[in-house]
């Protein structure tokens, strides 16, 4: 017999309430070759004053791709052109510095699919990258 998931919930007092908020501005960018995908997303947030943001659209190619796997291992997908298929993720500003956490799927030049989290500094844009980011405006935390 399966355990009732309700039996396993944490006591309410142990769990922080979810962050509430709303979406704000939205930005669209075209990134030029050789710029790093992850760091450019962070720089776009600095430029536009987005403290926190959610990825709302992305397409383009990388000249090579480095993915961090859930195991902690990293894999390199050789180019010279790796197509982005899907991308999800967010940017959070911690201690004043924006940090992008981006995961998705790519296809190598032979069409083989890989998935993982994009390693900062190791994912240079090939021809172009289009990215759409939506600002997340968190409400002030209740005291």
């Amino acid at each position: 017999m399966q355990a009732d998931p309700q039996d396993a919930v944490s006591p309410e007092s142990d769990v922080a309430p979810p962050e509430s908020g709303q979406t704000g501005r939205i930005l669209y960018a075209r990134v030029r070759p050789n710029e790093d995908l992850v760091q450019t997303v962070e720089k776009l947030c600095l430029q536009h004053g987005f403290a926190d943001a959610v990825v709302r659209g992305s397409l383009g190619s990388l000249s090579q791709c480095c993915l961090e796997l859930h195991t902690g291992a990293r894999i390199d997908v050789p180019g010279p052109a790796v197509e982005m298929l899907t991308l999800m993720g967010e940017v959070r500003t911690v201690d004043g510095a924006p940090r992008a956490q981006l995961s998705g799927t790519v296809a190598d030049p032979e069409g083989k699919i890989f998935a993982g989290r994009f390693a900062a500094g190791r994912n240079p844009v090939c021809i172009t990258f289009e990215i759409t980011l939506e600002e997340w405006l968190a409400d002030a935390a209740p005291n």
Binding site: R25, Y28, V31, R32, T40, L44, A73
Partner: peptide, 25 residues
Amino acid sequence: PGDVPVRLLKHPGPVAARRWDSLSC
């Protein structure tokens, strides 16, 4: 794996000084 050098590509035209264009709404 996970340790190959990041190799930048030389494109045929002049390298633009501005590395991205963006708009916000």
